[in-house]
Amino acid sequence: MSFIATHPQTAIDRFVALVDDVRTEFGEEGLMANVERFISAERPDFIWEGRFQEHYLGEWMGADDGAEGLYCILILSHFRGDFIVASCVVDGDERLHSMTRQRAYATHDAAEKAFQSANGR
């Protein structure tokens, strides 16, 4: 079964909120260096949380025995000014396990075209 879900929120860039949160927690000194550290550690999570469209691709057929109950989802997301199309592996509770591929686009139209092309529409 294949479906496309559109999330009720619009494409909200979580980057601004991240900068504000890091500023509140650690102050202005070294702000962007701290932000970059958070992004390098959590980038797939920011992309997953910023998704506004998704397409179910099927059950994940990973090589390890722990792959049972995981699913492949193609998402269209927005983070740090880019629109991103990414392939994700999630569990039944929609918790991200891994992001197998991602590509950034400068415009929504370009990303939407790639998203639709990737899911066969």
Results as ranks from 00 to 15, higher is better:
D91N: 15
G81H: 02
Y56Q: 07
T10N: 05
R103C: 09
A104Q: 13
N34F: 09
E54G: 10
L70A: 07
N34T: 11
E42F: 13
F38D: 12
R43F: 06
D21R: 14
F38M: 13
R37V: 08
K113L: 08
L76V: 04
R95M: 10
R37Y: 07
A118Y: 10
R37N: 14
T24E: 14
I12K: 06
D109H: 12
D109N: 13
F115V: 02
E25Y: 02
A118E: 12
M1R: 06
R23H: 05
D21Q: 14
A86K: 02
A106R: 15
L18F: 01
F115W: 05
Y71W: 15
T107Q: 04
G120D: 05
T6D: 02
V90S: 00
A118P: 03
E42R: 13
Y105H: 15
D93G: 04
D65R: 14
L96W: 00
Y71P: 04
M1D: 06
I73P: 00
H108W: 12
Q53S: 14
T107G: 03
G66I: 11
D64R: 15
R95D: 09
R43I: 08
A63L: 09
H97S: 09
R37E: 11
L70H: 12
R43W: 05
Y71I: 02
F115P: 01
G66P: 03
F26I: 07
D91V: 07
F83M: 01
A63K: 12
E29D: 14
R103A: 08
Y56H: 13
D109L: 11
E59P: 04
Y71T: 08
F26R: 15
C88S: 05
